[in-house]
Design a protein around this nucleic acid. Structure first.
Length: 154
DNA sequence: GCCAACGTTGGC
DNA sequence: GCCAACGTTGGC
């Protein structure tokens, strides 16, 4: 069981500043439609786990802040909303497919730690999905060692 | 159950 | 905007 995670967000949709401005500095992480990530939410995340907040699809992708898991798994209501971009007609009310967790802002990093810099530390980081080629996981586990290495780059 | 087509992610 | 990688879907 991991105590640390990395979660990607496109800053044009939802940035670390948006999280900091949210009510109670907390947001529900909805819209995930990947079974691996669903399973992490459902089976492995614990309230209080550390989160590296990562900006993707932007000029300088990288880790921009710290947050915490702030709830257990909750049903993602957007799967049942036909008007929502993340609507999933295959999901049944009696057996919801998709879940999310609450994420609470801790702080911004003093600087962005770019993906390029993380790649430069690939040897220390070891096996880390973020720096594998064409990784598509939007949420991934981070080991205690990896967490320490990344934080130390700040 | 295979596998080609398709859609999505995300860096560049 | 391009493209590589990969998950999902659907025909057979």
């Amino acid at each position: 069981m991991s105590a640390y995670w990395l979660m990607k967000s496109e800053p044009d949709s939802f940035s670390i500043d948006d999280l900091a401005r949210s009510p109670r500095k907390t947001t529900f992480w909805d819209g995930v439609r990947n079974f691996q990530v669903r399973n992490m939410f459902r089976d492995h995340m614990m309230v209080g786990d550390g989160v590296l907040f990562y900006h993707s699809s932007t000029a300088v992708p990288g880790v921009v802040g710290l947050a915490r898991v702030a709830s257990g798994p909750k049903i993602d209501p957007t799967q049942f909303d036909p008007d929502d971009h993340h609507y999933d007609p295959a999901s049944q009310l009696s057996a919801p497919r998709w879940m999310g967790v609450d994420v609470k802002f801790t702080r911004k990093l003093k600087r962005v730690i770019p993906l390029s810099e993380l790649r430069a530390h690939a040897h220390e980081l070891g096996d880390f999905p973020l720096i594998r080629k064409a990784n598509r996981l939007s949420v991934m586990p981070v080991s205690a060692d990896q967490w320490g290495i990344i934080i130390s780059l700040e």
